[in-house]
Write a protein that binds this DNA or RNA. Sequence first.
DNA 1: GTGAAAGCGCTAACAT
DNA 2: ATGTTAGCGCTTTCAC
Lengths: 339, 339
Amino acid sequence: MTLLRHRALEGVQAMAVTMKDVAERAGVSLPTVSRVINDTSYVKAQTRTRVLAAIAELQYSPNQLAISLRSQRTNTLALLVPDIANIFWKTVLRGVEDEASARGYHLFLGNTDDAPEKEARYVEGLLRRRIEGLLIVPTARSMPLLRRLRQQELPFVVVHRKLVGLEAQTVRSDAHASALILMQHLLAAGRRRIAFVGGELGRERLQAYREALAAAGVACDPALIRIGPLTQPSGAAMVAALLREGTPLDAMFIGNNRLAIGALHALTTAGKRIPEDVAIAAFYDEAALGDYAPPMIAAIQPVYEIGRVAARQLFARLGHTPSSPVGETILSNRIVTIP
Amino acid sequence: MTLLRHRALEGVQAMAVTMKDVAERAGVSLPTVSRVINDTSYVKAQTRTRVLAAIAELQYSPNQLAISLRSQRTNTLALLVPDIANIFWKTVLRGVEDEASARGYHLFLGNTDDAPEKEARYVEGLLRRRIEGLLIVPTARSMPLLRRLRQQELPFVVVHRKLVGLEAQTVRSDAHASALILMQHLLAAGRRRIAFVGGELGRERLQAYREALAAAGVACDPALIRIGPLTQPSGAAMVAALLREGTPLDAMFIGNNRLAIGALHALTTAGKRIPEDVAIAAFYDEAALGDYAPPMIAAIQPVYEIGRVAARQLFARLGHTPSSPVGETILSNRIVTIP
DNA sequence: GTGAAAGCGCTAACAT
DNA sequence: ATGTTAGCGCTTTCAC
């Protein structure tokens, strides 16, 4: 007996076994099979057995597309991150996936490369696929997109980045508070010429930098402030430039772990002693900490927890009307001093 | 005018706009809308305009579930990895995702934690969702599952791991060849007491280790061979134990990047000089190389390429009958010596 | 306890 | 150039 019936319209694969096949095989009607599978009504024990046997023999696999089309539920979420190859997001992803999989949900993953067009294209495809919710690390220009999501009533949670001007459920860590602590640490150690090395999106960190300097009565020298792409080479280049220019400095505040790794390399290459010549305070990473950690003070972000909490909050919103109130969940960073 | 029609059966979300809504709004019949969208037949310019206007006004988003149900095509793949939080897989994932997204495919991601039950549960869900193909890093006990996939005629590609006894399209790097080169390098440098630190699945590496020793006429001392979980702490523990036991050794072959990082730490902690006291040859990682790289010889795996090539081969199989011939694609590692 | 029929949203014949 | 009809695989009234 062959299971091949006829070719699909476009595809070349054999048609899959359907409920109808199972029904015929078991000598019952189609709804009866459905009832057995979903345990949705009493079925005579004998009939049930026959149906189950047919299912096993035919290796029947229910078509989730059809089920979803009827039920309006896909049990599917999506996560959009800038670049999964970056060390930070993979752990967030793991947190999200754990939470989703525990609830029987499947997860689409997409990289946006922080490009709004790519992001928009992805979101469009995900909407068509009728995902039930979206976790998104938005770009700096994602506002219109997110407004559309709101309008389309797709539940979503903003991960790790704060968007001003949009009321959206957000999960992130407390960059501002941690930045203040790091700066205060440097200042308490008597450092006064503190360079800032950060990225475009780190507004909070830069603000904390300025606040801490002001509070300590230290003038803010624009020549010490560097902002660039959040990559290791970029960190190395910015620090190399700083040193080359010769502006006096005795400490550095680095707003991102990849920047920090690059910066530390550049400092070592230039023969600077850490912390004697240059004291370091940085947003760093658990893994990087294990691999390479000179004496410094670091803020470690709760990456896995950010993913889990964000997913949980998304689930909490799935059941509710999309207009349910939104808020920010701010997780604390762990401050670590390496002697 | 409200878009809310009635509540979905189970869900609480408002019903989405359908093609029918668009048709009514534009004052045309349903297939006409379809024709406009898919450009599948001539439509009078004026009608087309009216339809497009209706689509825009209603923010219509085609239901991919319905489309897929009809067309038998989901434009969806899945990737199952042991643990995305591990440094290795995230880059593979990125390669896969790039390739998929370039072809308009979306990607499900799942973590198996190398647990066959979790893997099986995932595959079941993915089959129901009618993915068109699967990329999988199988566990040691995945054979029955993969046989079922073969039977169900789901195209799949085995990534990075070699399964004996199953004919399956496989993409991996040449661990055996690289291991031989690394070992020959150590032996050429006059090292004779070479420890082996590896994982359960690294059979090829261990075999190459033995072959190289035999070829050089060096006896293989079982006391120098350690096998454990592929984690950094495990690497540190195995090396610490080796040193504690005092078996003489002047070199180490390490079969995995996480093991290597742990091992290097343990050696440093024990005050061993590298390479004076202990020469190192290891399977290492591009990123780890940038962060922490004492003098050694390393095999760098083409992680991103593994992902891309695997995805490409999967795409190549989508069009064909599932019985099309399978083979192995073996990518070369890059051998790097750090002076 | 089970079957017949309608419909989820869409596309592809077949009409006109 | 557009409308009518059937059907993808499933669940859910409604009959019997």
